[in-house]
Simulated assay, not measured.
Amino acid sequence: MSPRKSTTQATPTAAPVANDAAGITPKGDSDTPLYVAAIGVRWRDLDAFNHVNNSNYLTYLEEARLQWLSHVPGPWFDDHAMPVMAASQINYRRPIAWPAQLQVQLFCERVGNSSMTIAHRVIDAEHPDQLYCDGHVVMVWMDPASGKPVPLPEAIRIAAA
Rank of each mutant, 00 (worst) to 15 (best):
T7W: 09
T8I: 07
A10C: 01
T11Q: 04
A15I: 01
A15R: 09
P16C: 05
V17R: 06
D20G: 14
A21L: 11
A21T: 08
A22V: 12
I24G: 02
I24A: 09
T25C: 02
K27H: 05
T32K: 14
P33F: 01
L34S: 02
Y35R: 01
V36W: 02
A37E: 04
A38Y: 04
R44E: 00
N53Y: 09
N53E: 03
N53D: 13
N56G: 00
N56K: 05
L61K: 02
E62H: 13
A64Q: 00
L66H: 06
L69D: 02
S70A: 13
S70D: 14
H71F: 03
V72N: 08
W76M: 02
F77V: 05
D78M: 07
D79R: 12
V84D: 07
I90V: 14
Y92S: 02
R94P: 04
P95D: 05
A97I: 04
Q101S: 11
Q105P: 06
C108M: 03
G112P: 10
S114Q: 12
M116T: 11
M116S: 05
T117H: 12
I118M: 08
I123L: 09
A125P: 04
Q130E: 13
C133H: 03
H136Q: 13
V138Y: 11
M142R: 14
M142F: 14
D143E: 14
V150D: 07
L152C: 08
E154Q: 15
I156P: 02
A161H: 11
